[in-house]
Measured scan of single mutants.
Amino acid sequence: LVRYRTISKIPQITLNFVDLKGDPFLASPTSDREIIAPKIKERTHNVTEKVTQVLSLGADVLPEYKLQAPRIHRWTILHYSPFKAVWDWLILLLVIYTAVFTPYSAAFLLKETEEGPPATECGYACQPLAVVDLIVDIMFIVDILINFRTTYVNANEEVVSHPGRIAVHYFKGWFLIDMVAAIPFDLLIFGSGSEELIGLLKTARLLRLVRVARKLDRYSEYGAAVLFLLMCTFALIAHWLACIWYAIGNMEQPHMDSRIGWLHNLGDQIGKPYNSSGLGGPSIKDKYVTALYFTFSSLTSVGFGNVSPNTNSEKIFSICVMLIGSLMYASIFGNVSAIIQRLYSGTARYHTQMLRVREFIRFHQIPNPLRQRLEEYFQHAWSYTNGIDMNAVLKGFPECLQADICLHLNRSLLQHCKPFRGATKGCLRALAMKFKTTHAPPGDTLVHAGDLLTALYFISRGSIEILRGDVVVAILGKNDIFGEPLNLYARPGKSNGDVRALTYCDLHKIHR
């Protein structure tokens, strides 16, 4: 019993810090008490220290592992850092350059016999395009090294910054494609005289377009951006097909006994025919423009016929181009109408809503002055909100995010209106959640004399007048207030005048 009563005193000691020596009952000389009392004092002292730490809000209350900052290894790049964003855009520009100039170089340097010394005699450094290609190869190699040090988000939505895990993730992902696209074939085969082989191998750079397509997928929600990307894709495919079309004609031209190829026909049409040795002929500019003209006309199913396939190889390629053109029509131009419709969806919704308003007016036989006010209010409210119901949009977000959005939407009023000066951010967040926005066209009466005042109004834009009878008592403008002081009276009061809008007004109100 003594032991039980001794232990039962522990909660009292913990909360009230009572010393055991003052209790005459606990001072009985028993061996059990002498053993338990020192333990009680020690526990009391420890609990006292913990309570003191909690009340003082000291940093040592938290466990040590929670006080440590997340460790980022040296030379690790955050995937959302500004440097990584700028670097990704730079790589994107280099990939676009590669997609345009690599097929052009591979096709127009394929057994090209233009006048001038061969590239091997001039030297590697004197070729501007080769120098640019070398810079692109170096940048792609540097990009691989950067990807080995860039964080990523795993399946659990955690940012991984450990170098080993980053390397394994990159090896399992895009490393092989990036490595093949970054191989400097110019340096590996330079001086061997195989410019045709170098041009063909350099087309491996186009593998990076797969990554670019995935990154550009984030802009699919913007109709104008999608339309622009589709047109660029169409032009890029036409450019690639033009390079292939020229390569076919250029390879067949020296081996044909009869002059029936499209390059021969082009030379005869523009007065620059090929001679018996295969030299001469149109310039590279004429060849490229004509090839691009043929691919565009074939892809769009126009086909004027002034550039036509004559050999079997050219006919087979033309059939493939027609098939590609039909697929592009289905996948690209078939979506253009939907994209344009999405661009004008706001206008369509406006006309639909206006039609419903006019049908309501016609069905209920609203008189002319009231009908005009109804239409003007709808037009003004639509121009202010673009038909978007803010309350319906915010309803799907958590309250903390709703408060931040409301604070942002009402920031101008909260910053410049005098009653809100000096208020804490928590108070402003709470008030912003209570605001209701209303609009009024010129001549609209917001409050009639004798109406119950259940709200306090803040003028965000425009001006109003307060009338008693036919006498203008006051004219209020931006950041002015009218209405009933909230919670100042037990019952809502009545208006002693009319409140009429002089201009288009936007008002925020808080109800009782």
Rank of each mutant, 00 (worst) to 15 (best):
R349N: 07
I366C: 01
A330W: 07
G249Y: 01
P419Q: 04
A238D: 01
A225C: 11
M322V: 04
L413S: 01
A106I: 11
F397R: 02
S326Y: 05
V212G: 04
A423Y: 01
L216E: 01
S308E: 01
N154C: 09
V131Q: 05
E221V: 01
T445K: 04
S194C: 14
Q365S: 09
G249D: 01
S297I: 01
V100S: 01
H73I: 05
R218F: 01
L200H: 01
A423T: 03
R421K: 12
W174M: 10
F360R: 03
Y170R: 01
L370P: 03
L236G: 01
L206V: 05
P273W: 01
W89N: 01
R214V: 05
G193N: 05
A423I: 10
A381S: 10
E376T: 14
P163V: 06
V336A: 01
A182T: 05
L229A: 05
P419L: 06
Q415W: 05
F83C: 12
S331Q: 01
H364N: 13
F185W: 05
L216Q: 03
H380L: 05
S81N: 04
A392S: 08
G173Y: 05
R74Y: 05
E115V: 14
L230C: 09
K202C: 01
A392I: 06
L78M: 06
Q68C: 01
M251D: 01
M179F: 12
S258H: 13
I340M: 07
A155Q: 07
H380C: 10
Y222C: 13
A69F: 10
W87F: 03
E252I: 03
T424P: 09
F175M: 05
V212N: 06
G164N: 14
L428F: 02
C122L: 01
I260L: 10
T150G: 01
S298I: 15
I244Q: 01
I77G: 01
V136F: 05
Y65W: 03
S161C: 13
Q379I: 15
L110A: 14
V86Y: 02
F333R: 03
C126N: 01
T347A: 10
T98R: 03
S345M: 13
R211M: 03
W174T: 04
V160M: 09
K172C: 09
L109M: 13
L374D: 01
L230R: 01
I91R: 01
C400A: 10
H408E: 06
G422H: 11
V160R: 01
V447D: 02
D133C: 01
P117Q: 11
D217F: 05
E196D: 14
L446E: 01
E196V: 13
A99F: 01
L299Q: 01
A213V: 07
A247Q: 01
P163Y: 05
Y293E: 01
L216W: 04
A432Q: 01
S298A: 14
F190D: 14
G280W: 01
E196P: 14
